[in-house]
Design a binder for these strands. Structure first.
Lengths: 218, 218
DNA sequence: AAAAATCAATTAAACGTTTGTTTAATTCAA
DNA sequence: TTGAATTAAACAAACGTTTAATTGATTTTT
């Protein structure tokens, strides 16, 4: 792919994440990319196809890693869960802009793009399901609700990568912290929380609803 | 408030949730609401102020409930967590369209609206923090990361209320299930999962990272 | 009680911008 | 000399908003 084409895609990603797809004009993209307006139609055909090209570029790059992780027989299910958390937190934080776009657009855009984003989500679900159900078969994990657990992992990360302003206030970071530091701190905090959460949630030793006051539940 | 004004707000909420704020034109709203185009400027001043009116209408209706829950001395922290989950799941699912808008627009829109949505989130955080830290003081809950735990609750719900198509596939509901049944099933499943998750996550008896294979952690 | 005045509600039409896209001419390296 | 890359200009359509005229019920005046 030509340098210029890729540069346009990077700029578009930035703007879509900032202002949304509909909130970004083709002229915005052309101006920030420093190219002529007509070049965008020339390269991509249309604004919508530009977004599809961006999804194409970003989406299909990391599934090999998850599959490898799944096949690795030397790792225990607990190890795999920890690596899974590391993987998703790093992945989403590193591609925060793209992830913001996917999240924003999955509910609004064309059927073509909707189907793509759901497909991506389903592949994620599939891989994580394998890991958890493996741990269940080995009597290490409880019979938790797997799709909901996946929603918890992805939802927690998304909740905190969605709004830097909110994150900075609640995590007591300065509002004008630089992006690298912000990513680093958020990443550490998310990973620690999710690993601790999942250990408690999955561990078969915590079976039958441990209640300090009211052991039979409510 | 006049019937017509409220009707326009309902229609706008519907469209904003479907197509986003920027993806919805004032003419779209006027047409679906069956009113003249100029009435929207007449009632609200502008499209942006219409959104602010919508936030005004929907946002400030439920904080009394949370504060009451917090003050109730007869409930144990465990009871409060359960009620909290019921409350948020019901609230978000019942106002799914509005919540979708808040989520979409919090990262993109004007400073005015951004500040509003962050303010709402912070008030939520404040109330939940009280409940959890109360449980911690009473030695029932672990010293979990409270803001992250709040992110888990809200993020999990948001993840599943954001895309009906994805929810229907993963939860094995028919794609053309009616909205009421869809809400009911999703609600039940989310509540059960979150309560179970939080019991394991918060219970002080699960302290010190329970690991079946590797008790010292990784 | 009838007529006149008042004012909010409603309308069709038009406003000036901005939108995504296309055209037709030009540049520039192969 | 060929053909892709690049440009400025123009396109029609859609955008949010405003205008000026009209309706219709309520209030005031005669």
């Amino acid at each position: 792919m030509s340098d210029k084409r890729e540069h346009i895609l990077n700029v578009a990603e930035e703007l879509f994440a900032e202002k949304g797809f509909d909130g970004t004009s083709v002229r915005d993209i052309a101006q920030r990319a420093g190219v002529n307006l007509a070049m965008i139609s020339y390269y991509f055909g249309s604004k919508e196809k530009l977004l599809e090209s961006l999804i194409e570029l970003r989406a299909g790059y990391a599934y090999g890693i998850l599959e490898e992780l799944n096949k690795d027989e030397t790792l225990s299910p607990w190890d795999k869960v920890d690596r899974l958390v590391d993987f998703y937190v790093d992945r989403i934080i590193h591609n925060m802009k793209f992830h913001t776009i996917m999240w924003q657009e999955s509910s609004a855009r064309s059927e073509e793009i909707k189907a793509r984003t759901i497909g991506i989500k389903l592949r994620n679900l599939e891989q994580i399901t394998k890991i958890i159900s493996d741990g269940q078969q080995k009597k290490l994990f409880r019979q938790v609700d797997i799709p909901m657990t996946v929603g918890t992992i992805m939802g927690t990360i998304s909740y905190y990568t969605h709004s830097k302003a909110y994150s900075c206030v609640t995590l007591h970071l300065g509002e004008d912290i630089n992006d690298e530091q912000y990513h680093q701190r958020l990443s550490t905090r998310l990973k620690a929380h999710l690993k601790r959460l999942l250990r408690a949630h999955l561990d078969i030793k915590n079976e039958s609803g441990p209640m300090t006051e009211d052991p039979k539940g409510h």
